[in-house]
Amino acid sequence: MTKVLVVDDETNLVELVQSYLVREGYEVLTAFDGLEALELARANPPDLVVLDLMLPGLDGIEVCRQLRQFSDAYVIMLTAKTEEIDKIVGLSVGADDYLTKPFSPRELVARVKAMLRRPRSGAAGLSQPEVTPPHKLGDLVIDELRHEVRRQEEVISLTAREFALLVTLSAHPGRVFTRFQLLERVWGDEYYDDHVVDVHIANLRKKLETEPGSLQYIETVRGVGYRFEVRDIK
């Protein structure tokens, strides 16, 4: 049975969401603070986490950051704030989607269903005909079979979405992908704000281009999108 972890300090909201999800056939775990959520996720790995941004103890951002160290569960962040920065921060630490309170439980259930329809393994929904053998681009080795990226034998830790973006872009060096094309290939056919692409690209760049003057891999094509180019910027 698909397992969903619901984390919020509002008891009534947790019970409401739980009732809707149970009705749809999901096994539901509940937690009311950040530490309890992480303990539950380690003991009973969920397929998806509904995570409130404002929690006692550890807030949702820190919970999501720590969760990503040991889990590839989908994360839907709940926030009572409407400022764009809160959404961006949530996405930057590995959340897959966000929902602003107050929300309809039916809308949440619909998003849960849509997200769980996408494959979680490997490239997180990336659609491609076959997995290619490890290949070297610049000083990176991209190994799709092992789902890892290495630089001089050091593994670079990427989230599933970041890896999917890198695989998509690096499979066609020089080709420009629009944000919509990247959304379609990496996030699937469900609607997302295309700003999520910019956030994940920024995170990917930080991990790939760690040293000043190091190789640059992802180029912004202003007004269009992104492309993969190995450039020596020393």
Score class of each variant (00 low, 15 high):
residue 161 R to L: 08
residue 53 L to Y: 15
residue 117 R to I: 01
residue 21 L to T: 05
residue 183 L to R: 14
residue 137 L to D: 04
residue 214 S to C: 00
residue 224 V to H: 07
residue 39 E to S: 15
residue 119 P to M: 05
residue 193 D to F: 07
residue 208 L to C: 04
residue 165 L to G: 08
residue 141 V to P: 08
residue 38 L to E: 06
residue 46 P to R: 10
residue 180 F to L: 15
residue 189 D to C: 03
residue 196 V to N: 03
residue 135 H to Q: 13
residue 68 R to I: 02
residue 221 V to M: 11
residue 211 E to L: 12
residue 2 T to L: 01
residue 97 D to G: 12
residue 147 H to M: 08
residue 8 D to I: 03
residue 140 L to F: 02
residue 232 D to Y: 14
residue 209 E to G: 09
residue 131 V to P: 10
residue 70 F to I: 04
residue 188 G to A: 00
residue 130 E to R: 09
residue 224 V to E: 13
residue 9 D to F: 05
residue 222 R to L: 09
residue 143 D to E: 05
residue 85 I to C: 01
residue 182 L to V: 06
residue 116 L to Y: 05
residue 1 M to L: 14
residue 9 D to M: 04
residue 184 E to K: 04
residue 108 L to N: 04
residue 39 E to I: 11
residue 196 V to H: 07
residue 55 L to A: 00
residue 169 L to S: 00
residue 113 K to H: 06
residue 40 L to Q: 15
residue 192 Y to F: 14
residue 96 D to I: 03
residue 55 L to K: 09
residue 63 V to E: 07
residue 13 L to A: 00
residue 174 G to S: 11
residue 214 S to E: 11
residue 26 Y to Q: 05
residue 163 F to M: 14
residue 49 V to H: 06
residue 211 E to S: 15
residue 86 D to A: 12
residue 1 M to T: 09
residue 156 I to P: 01
residue 147 H to K: 13
residue 36 E to Y: 02
residue 162 E to T: 11
residue 116 L to F: 08
residue 60 G to C: 09
residue 202 A to E: 05
residue 170 S to H: 04
residue 47 D to L: 09
residue 24 E to N: 07
residue 72 D to T: 07
residue 90 G to N: 11
residue 16 L to V: 02
residue 111 R to M: 12
residue 24 E to H: 06
residue 148 E to P: 01
residue 207 K to I: 02
residue 225 G to L: 03
residue 101 K to P: 12
residue 26 Y to R: 13
residue 6 V to T: 09
residue 127 S to L: 15
residue 79 T to D: 07
residue 74 Y to C: 01
residue 39 E to Q: 11
residue 52 D to Y: 08
residue 214 S to K: 00
residue 159 T to A: 10
residue 82 T to F: 04
residue 150 R to H: 05
residue 190 E to K: 12
residue 51 L to K: 13
residue 18 Q to Y: 02
residue 159 T to Q: 14
residue 213 G to D: 07
residue 3 K to G: 05
residue 33 D to Y: 09
residue 138 G to D: 08
residue 166 L to P: 06
residue 157 S to N: 13
residue 207 K to V: 00
residue 117 R to A: 09
residue 83 E to G: 12
residue 127 S to E: 10
residue 201 I to A: 02
residue 193 D to P: 10
residue 19 S to W: 05
residue 95 A to K: 02
residue 127 S to A: 05
residue 55 L to S: 00
residue 53 L to M: 13
residue 209 E to Q: 14
residue 180 F to I: 11
residue 54 M to C: 04
residue 61 I to P: 01
residue 4 V to R: 11
residue 45 P to E: 05
residue 169 L to I: 10
residue 172 H to T: 14
residue 231 R to F: 03
residue 115 M to S: 12
residue 112 V to E: 03
residue 47 D to T: 03
residue 52 D to T: 01
residue 156 I to Y: 04
residue 222 R to A: 15
residue 122 G to E: 08
residue 62 E to F: 02
residue 138 G to M: 12
residue 193 D to I: 06
residue 209 E to P: 02
residue 91 L to E: 04
residue 118 R to Y: 14
residue 120 R to L: 12
residue 34 G to F: 14
residue 56 P to I: 11
residue 227 R to G: 11
residue 194 D to L: 15
residue 2 T to H: 00
residue 197 V to W: 15
residue 59 D to G: 03
residue 186 V to P: 08
residue 230 V to K: 05
residue 10 E to D: 10
